[in-house]
Design a protein around this nucleic acid. Structure first.
Lengths: 199, 199
DNA sequence: TGGTTTCTGTATTGAATGATATAGAATGTG
DNA sequence: CACATTCTATATCATTCAATACAGAAACCA
């Protein structure tokens, strides 16, 4: 931290950002506890001392991976909801982009935040809670946009915004599991079409 | 296996069914890989050699735990769908019973099949696939009941039964995650009410 | 060039993992 | 009572886990 103006000592041989990205990819595939340190060092092409010097611990490396994921693969949600005339349109675009992203890579991965530490040993309870809190942020995202729609008038005044927000969130998370189970893109799109019909 | 008519040798000191139930409870809380053997032997109140003699391995113990879960906590789904006049009613009852069950215990646990091995190391890929296949059975459950409704006439002929089945399944799985994240019973019920409005 | 700092690879740490070897205890049978 | 059989507890197995000690390498500054 505070990699300031003048750097003393031997410079780092590897690119920290590239290494972090490799770590994120590995965690994404095997989860927090399911990924071993030797897997990480192998994927990042560095040795344990370099990993610990640069990231502190496996847990800190994971938390940085979460943040990288959110920044790289999660930002579209805010964007989709914001750049839309109505709440309905915003949510439609959000789900469409979700499907595009989930099926963009060769391996259909689904949401990092849902997959990587849904359960696990007590040792990883902090990591689990961190992801849980992040998932709850998704509910707030939906809720805020729906309330905005209520003010704007494209969402009926008597609408139960909380229920709708929880509903879309559950669907988004369930979609990740379905995709992990092999659901194809067309089916995913049909599923979402049914879900959006409530608006 | 084949505990026949006459039993030779020292009889087992513990109740195999009780021990299996304790194992299931532990796996339910911490997942397949997140549960250690010492946790299991402690919860089951037996020593490792007894565990291996009775169940073979951690993996086999887990698979038996899955089957026990399905039999004890999963059978209501078939029942709900079968004992109903229409597909809509069957699905309504299924979700109502799901909520009742999820909130029946003091600790809200959600679906074992979703929680215990959603991701993990390559070592547990067989367990992951086993659960994945079991999750896909849920889709078939919904699909079969909806098609039955189509024949009976309570589901419109042009209905996309596949899309609906995947939709309800995604919702059921997402509900488990929401509950793990602390969703209260009233909110869960509101969420489901929204979901069912598509029928 | 010598001194300081920081990174790197090798090798290793103590602890925990899933799984057993072994010997003794508890049953039914002859 | 011996005997065969099966279970039990103690102690331990090799392996893997996350994390480091150490010494050399590579940069900067004086």
């Amino acid at each position: 931290m505070h990699r300031g103006t003048v750097q003393k000592g031997r410079p780092r041989d590897f690119d920290r950002d590239v290494a972090l990205e490799k770590a994120m990819e590995t965690f994404w595939l095997y989860g927090y506890e399911g990924t071993s340190l030797s897997q990480l060092t192998s994927a990042m092409d560095i040795r344990p001392p370099s990993l610990y010097a640069a990231f502190g611990s496996k847990e800190k490396l994971f938390l940085e991976s979460v943040n990288l994921y959110l920044q790289r693969y999660g930002a579209y949600r805010e964007t989709a909801l914001a750049h839309s005339a109505t709440a309905k349109e915003g949510i439609e675009v959000l789900f469409e982009r979700t499907i595009q992203q989930f099926f963009a890579g060769r391996d259909h991965k689904g949401c990092f935040v849902v997959l990587t530490a849904l359960s696990g040993s007590q040792d990883s309870s902090e990591v689990q809670q961190f992801l849980s809190a992040e998932r709850r942020r998704t509910v707030q995202l939906f809720k805020a946009r729906l309330e905005q729609g209520k003010v704007a008038g494209d969402i009926a005044a008597q609408t139960d915004v909380d229920a709708l927000a929880e509903y879309f969130t559950a669907l988004l998370f369930g979609l990740t599991i379905q995709i992990r189970d092999g659901l194809d893109e067309a089916s995913a799109r049909s599923l979402v079409a049914v879900a959006l019909s409530v608006l």
